[in-house]
Protein backbone atom coordinates (compact mmCIF):
# COMPACT_ATOMS: atom_id res chain seq x y z
CA UNK A 1 0.00 0.00 0.00
CA UNK A 2 2.55 2.61 -1.08
CA UNK A 3 0.05 5.22 -2.19
CA UNK A 4 0.83 8.91 -2.41
CA UNK A 5 -1.54 9.40 0.50
CA UNK A 6 -2.99 6.92 2.99
CA UNK A 7 -6.53 7.53 4.15
CA UNK A 8 -7.88 6.09 7.40
CA UNK A 9 -11.44 6.09 8.65
CA UNK A 10 -12.02 5.01 12.25
CA UNK A 11 -15.65 4.52 13.26
CA UNK A 12 -17.18 3.55 16.57
CA UNK A 13 -19.59 4.74 19.16
CA UNK A 14 -19.06 7.99 21.03
CA UNK A 15 -16.88 7.53 24.09
CA UNK A 16 -14.77 4.72 22.57
CA UNK A 17 -11.97 7.20 22.07
CA UNK A 18 -11.44 6.76 18.34
CA UNK A 19 -10.91 10.47 17.84
CA UNK A 20 -7.98 10.30 20.25
CA UNK A 21 -6.73 7.25 18.33
CA UNK A 22 -6.87 9.31 15.12
CA UNK A 23 -5.00 12.17 16.76
CA UNK A 24 -2.28 9.80 17.97
CA UNK A 25 -1.89 8.23 14.53
CA UNK A 26 -1.57 11.67 12.90
CA UNK A 27 0.85 12.79 15.60
CA UNK A 28 3.10 9.77 15.02
CA UNK A 29 3.17 10.46 11.27
CA UNK A 30 4.22 14.06 11.88
CA UNK A 31 7.03 12.88 14.18
CA UNK A 32 8.32 10.95 11.16
CA UNK A 33 8.39 14.11 9.06
CA UNK A 34 5.22 13.37 7.10
CA UNK A 35 2.17 15.52 6.61
CA UNK A 36 -1.02 14.51 8.37
CA UNK A 37 -4.53 15.88 8.74
CA UNK A 38 -7.08 14.62 11.25
CA UNK A 39 -10.77 15.46 11.16
CA UNK A 40 -13.80 14.08 12.94
CA UNK A 41 -17.52 14.00 13.01
CA UNK A 42 -19.86 13.05 15.78
CA UNK A 43 -23.40 13.58 16.93
CA UNK A 44 -24.47 15.78 19.82
CA UNK A 45 -24.12 12.96 22.37
CA UNK A 46 -20.98 12.65 24.50
CA UNK A 47 -21.56 8.90 24.84
CA UNK A 48 -23.15 6.55 22.35
CA UNK A 49 -24.17 7.52 18.83
CA UNK A 50 -21.83 6.95 15.91
CA UNK A 51 -18.58 8.85 15.80
CA UNK A 52 -15.75 8.84 13.31
CA UNK A 53 -12.22 10.09 13.07
CA UNK A 54 -10.41 10.47 9.79
CA UNK A 55 -6.70 10.71 9.16
CA UNK A 56 -4.77 11.36 5.96
CA UNK A 57 -1.02 10.74 5.95
CA UNK A 58 1.01 11.91 3.00
CA UNK A 59 4.56 12.73 1.97
CA UNK A 60 3.26 15.79 0.12
CA UNK A 61 0.91 18.65 1.05
CA UNK A 62 -2.71 17.71 1.75
CA UNK A 63 -5.33 20.06 0.33
CA UNK A 64 -8.77 18.45 0.78
CA UNK A 65 -8.72 17.41 4.45
CA UNK A 66 -11.50 14.80 4.42
CA UNK A 67 -11.25 11.12 3.53
CA UNK A 68 -13.05 10.16 0.31
CA UNK A 69 -11.83 6.60 -0.29
CA UNK A 70 -10.33 5.09 2.85
CA UNK A 71 -7.42 2.70 2.36
CA UNK A 72 -8.03 1.52 5.89
CA UNK A 73 -11.47 1.27 7.45
CA UNK A 74 -11.68 0.35 11.14
CA UNK A 75 -15.12 -0.05 12.71
CA UNK A 76 -15.92 -1.02 16.28
CA UNK A 77 -19.71 -0.84 16.19
CA UNK A 78 -22.48 -1.94 13.84
CA UNK A 79 -23.98 1.54 13.83
CA UNK A 80 -20.69 3.15 12.82
CA UNK A 81 -20.19 0.53 10.15
CA UNK A 82 -23.66 1.16 8.77
CA UNK A 83 -23.00 4.92 8.73
CA UNK A 84 -19.39 5.18 7.69
CA UNK A 85 -18.44 1.80 6.25
CA UNK A 86 -19.96 1.98 2.81
CA UNK A 87 -16.87 2.95 0.84
CA UNK A 88 -13.42 1.45 0.99
CA UNK A 89 -10.55 1.37 -1.45
CA UNK A 90 -10.56 -1.96 -3.36
CA UNK A 91 -6.84 -2.33 -2.56
CA UNK A 92 -7.35 -1.39 1.08
CA UNK A 93 -8.39 -3.35 4.13
CA UNK A 94 -11.13 -3.46 6.73
CA UNK A 95 -10.72 -4.10 10.45
CA UNK A 96 -13.80 -4.85 12.57
CA UNK A 97 -14.55 -6.09 16.05
CA UNK A 98 -15.52 -9.75 16.36
CA UNK A 99 -18.69 -8.76 18.24
CA UNK A 100 -20.21 -7.06 15.21
CA UNK A 101 -23.17 -8.68 13.48
CA UNK A 102 -23.67 -6.78 10.24
CA UNK A 103 -22.99 -8.42 6.92
CA UNK A 104 -19.47 -7.25 6.25
CA UNK A 105 -18.14 -6.07 2.95
CA UNK A 106 -15.61 -8.56 1.74
CA UNK A 107 -18.01 -11.05 0.13
CA UNK A 108 -18.88 -8.39 -2.41
CA UNK A 109 -15.78 -6.27 -2.69
CA UNK A 110 -13.07 -8.82 -1.93
CA UNK A 111 -11.40 -6.26 0.32
CA UNK A 112 -9.41 -8.15 2.97
CA UNK A 113 -11.31 -8.22 6.25
CA UNK A 114 -9.66 -8.66 9.63
CA UNK A 115 -12.02 -9.44 12.49
CA UNK A 116 -10.30 -8.91 15.80
CA UNK A 117 -11.52 -9.07 19.43
CA UNK A 118 -10.63 -5.44 20.09
CA UNK A 119 -13.33 -4.77 22.68
CA UNK A 120 -12.86 -8.01 24.59
CA UNK A 121 -9.07 -7.63 24.72
CA UNK A 122 -9.56 -4.20 26.27
CA UNK A 123 -12.17 -5.45 28.72
CA UNK A 124 -10.70 -8.79 29.71
CA UNK A 125 -6.97 -8.75 29.04
CA UNK A 126 -6.30 -5.12 29.98
CA UNK A 127 -9.18 -4.88 32.42
CA UNK A 128 -10.36 -1.50 31.13
CA UNK A 129 -12.92 -1.27 28.33
CA UNK A 130 -11.78 2.32 27.83
CA UNK A 131 -8.51 1.17 26.30
CA UNK A 132 -10.24 -0.28 23.22
CA UNK A 133 -8.99 2.68 21.18
CA UNK A 134 -5.37 1.77 21.93
CA UNK A 135 -6.00 -1.93 21.22
CA UNK A 136 -7.50 -0.83 17.90
CA UNK A 137 -4.44 1.29 17.13
CA UNK A 138 -2.23 -1.71 17.80
CA UNK A 139 -4.28 -3.86 15.40
CA UNK A 140 -4.25 -1.12 12.79
CA UNK A 141 -0.52 -0.59 12.90
CA UNK A 142 0.28 -4.30 12.88
CA UNK A 143 -1.77 -4.68 9.69
CA UNK A 144 -0.78 -1.46 7.90
CA UNK A 145 2.67 -0.54 9.29
CA UNK A 146 1.74 3.05 8.58
CA UNK A 147 4.13 4.46 11.14
CA UNK A 148 6.88 2.95 13.29
CA UNK A 149 5.99 1.43 16.65
CA UNK A 150 8.43 3.81 18.34
CA UNK A 151 6.69 6.92 16.96
CA UNK A 152 3.27 5.58 17.79
CA UNK A 153 4.26 4.64 21.33
CA UNK A 154 5.77 8.08 21.85
CA UNK A 155 2.61 9.73 20.52
CA UNK A 156 0.51 7.58 22.88
CA UNK A 157 2.66 8.55 25.86
CA UNK A 158 2.32 12.24 25.02
CA UNK A 159 -1.39 12.32 24.25
CA UNK A 160 -3.10 10.09 26.83
CA UNK A 161 -4.10 11.52 30.23
CA UNK A 162 -1.26 11.84 32.73
CA UNK A 163 -0.60 8.66 34.66
CA UNK A 164 -2.25 6.33 32.12
CA UNK A 165 0.61 5.91 29.62
CA UNK A 166 1.64 2.45 30.86
CA UNK A 167 -1.91 1.12 30.73
CA UNK A 168 -2.47 2.52 27.26
CA UNK A 169 0.85 1.22 25.95
CA UNK A 170 -0.02 -2.21 27.32
CA UNK A 171 -3.32 -2.06 25.44
CA UNK A 172 -1.57 -0.94 22.25
CA UNK A 173 0.90 -3.83 22.46
CA UNK A 174 -1.91 -6.32 23.12
CA UNK A 175 -3.68 -5.14 19.96
CA UNK A 176 -0.45 -5.34 18.01
CA UNK A 177 0.16 -8.93 19.18
CA UNK A 178 -3.40 -10.05 18.43
CA UNK A 179 -3.22 -8.77 14.86
CA UNK A 180 0.24 -10.25 14.32
CA UNK A 181 -1.07 -13.62 15.46
CA UNK A 182 -3.96 -13.35 13.07
CA UNK A 183 -1.54 -12.59 10.23
CA UNK A 184 0.53 -15.68 11.07
CA UNK A 185 -2.61 -17.82 11.25
CA UNK A 186 -3.65 -16.63 7.79
Amino acid sequence: MKNAAMEFRLGGSGGQGLILAGIILADAAIMEGKNAVQTQSYGPEARGGASKAEVIISESAIDYPKVTMPNVLLCLSDEAYRKYGQVVDPNGLVITDTSMHLPLPNEKTMVPLYRLPVLSIAREKIGRGLTANMVALGCLNALTKSVSDASLEQAISERVPAGTAELNLKAYRAGLAAAQQLLIAK
Partner: peptide
Amino acid sequence: EVVGHMRER
Protein backbone atom coordinates in the same frame (compact mmCIF):
# COMPACT_ATOMS: atom_id res chain seq x y z
CA GLU B 1 -15.98 24.41 11.74
CA VAL B 2 -13.70 22.42 9.43
CA VAL B 3 -10.66 24.65 9.99
CA GLY B 4 -11.48 25.13 13.69
CA HIS B 5 -11.69 21.43 14.54
CA MET B 6 -9.20 20.00 12.06
CA ARG B 7 -5.77 19.03 13.28
CA GLU B 8 -2.78 19.20 10.99
CA ARG B 9 0.94 19.65 10.83
